[in-house]
């Protein structure tokens, strides 16, 4: 079992509660991770477009007063299923890593200490 750190999974998670535009996704990830996760912002859009082509997200253009329009993305049913799979795999992976790390930590504690 291996979890490939995947921007797609993080984007899906960012979109699960409400539709967001590109920069909104960046902000959401930054906020949720308390600034720990920093996206290569430019890489976001090619991935979003691929996900849109595959039907994981749907995008529509939002008109703004006095500003250029921006594209808003919403999670589709397929995207929600994909998110669930990513989430399960991540949990399995992180639990496995935690178990291994904990075992190592126990061994490192000197006997009788």
């Amino acid at each position: 079992m291996a979890f490939k750190t995947d921007l797609e999974a993080i984007i899906l998670a960012a979109l699960q509660d409400a539709p967001l535009h590109g920069y909104g996704i960046v902000r959401s990830i930054r906020a949720e991770s308390e600034g720990l996760l920093k996206l290569g912002e430019g890489q976001l859009y090619p991935i979003l477009h691929r996900m849109e082509d595959e039907g994981l997200v749907a995008g529509d253009w939002e008109m703004q007063d006095g500003k250029p329009p921006r594209k808003r993305y919403v999670l589709t049913d397929l995207g929600r299923q994909a998110l669930e799979i990513h989430r399960t795999k991540w949990q399995e992976f992180s639990e496995a890593v935690t178990r291994v790390m904990s075992a190592r930590a126990r061994k490192e504690v000197p006997e009788g200490a």
């Binding site: 535009h21 590109g22 920069y23 912002e41 430019g42 859009y45 477009h49 329009p69 594209k71």
Partner: peptide, 12 residues
């Protein structure tokens, strides 16, 4: 794509 990038940069 360019329109999205512009919107992103403007907001940032």
């Amino acid at each position: 794509f360019l329109a999205e990038v512009r919107a992103h940069l403007d907001e940032r």
